[in-house]
Design a protein around this nucleic acid. Structure first.
Lengths: 100, 100
DNA sequence: ATATTATATCTACATTTCTCGATATGTCAA
DNA sequence: TTGACATATCGAGAAATGTAGATATAATAT
């Protein structure tokens, strides 16, 4: 885990927002293709709709969160689903407690 | 606490470094005027010497950490001492565990 | 009062980040 | 195969950040 990369990813209101939305996805996103948001995740379009930004920006933000290790991706058909990587997020908390 | 401001402050190698040095100041800084680094802190010159950067940059970085609430300042004579604000840092850890 | 030292602030330039529109790529449906 | 849709990537301009030098301010020492 590169803490600098993680902190940079978290240094943006919208990206922090996305991560929080993904904590309880069914509370924040409209259902989609009958997939279980909790286990599969939400797709880029769902995030784009909720952010007030373009598809391009939403896709890039999700990439940044993924490269930082905070979310995981799974492609199903033409959709790409993203969900939180709770293990990595716990590692971050552990880093904060130990190193910081 | 403004988490975005905090994450921004932590998104820089040198500033993260400073915060870690301040965890065990006597291991990382040369003594100064006989002050107890643990209770009083370290002054801008000590940080400047250890960073490989200018006094201007060191002072600015310390300000950023302070505005983010991660360190506290105390002026004694012509020196300004900085030390960690452990309470605020714990708040950050709590934020991570609850909100993030 | 003046010189010296420590720190803060101002200005500036280079680099990075933000955000978009345009376009490419991947996948499915007809 | 073509068309439609979802996503990713590219290129660009505006804004923010990184970092330095110059200078201002504050405190001390002579």
């Amino acid at each position: 885990m590169d803490p600098i990369e993680v902190f940079k990813a978290l240094s943006n209101e919208s990206r922090l927002q996305i991560l929080q939305w993904l904590k309880e996805p069914e509370k924040h996103f409209v259902p989609h293709e009958g997939v279980d948001m909790r286990t599969i995740g939400v797709c880029v379009s769902q995030v784009t709709d909720k952010l007030n930004m373009t598809q391009s920006t939403a896709s890039q933000y999700l990439s940044i969160l993924q490269r930082a290790g905070l979310i995981r991706t799974e492609r199903i058909g033409k959709y790409t689903y993203y969900k939180r990587d709770e293990e990595k997020i716990s590692e971050l908390a552990a880093y904060l407690n130990q190193e910081l």
